[in-house]
Amino acid sequence: MDINGQDLIKACSAIGAGLALIAGVGPGIGQGVAAGHAASAVGRNPGAKGDITATMLLGQAVAETTGLYGLVTALLLMFVQPLVG
């Protein structure tokens, strides 16, 4: 099997896309922590359930951003292939 430079770049792009998605670990932990604290907050003060849920969702959506950067990088590497000449 012959592997030329372009094939190598494509293969490395695929590996890079996989590595970029490791960024999903952080937001996963962060969102879990936020949801856990929100659950305990609802347990302490069930009356404020609506406010707590809204705040939790807003915070989680912001925390998600770093994971989404990883996703965008992976998609660029896989489908736009900027490194392939």
Binding site: A61, E64, T65, L68, Y69, V72
Partner: peptide, 16 residues
Amino acid sequence: ISMSLRLFANVLSGVV
């Protein structure tokens, strides 16, 4: 940049 990427990437992930 972060605001636009957040919205874009969320919707795009659904599309993908």
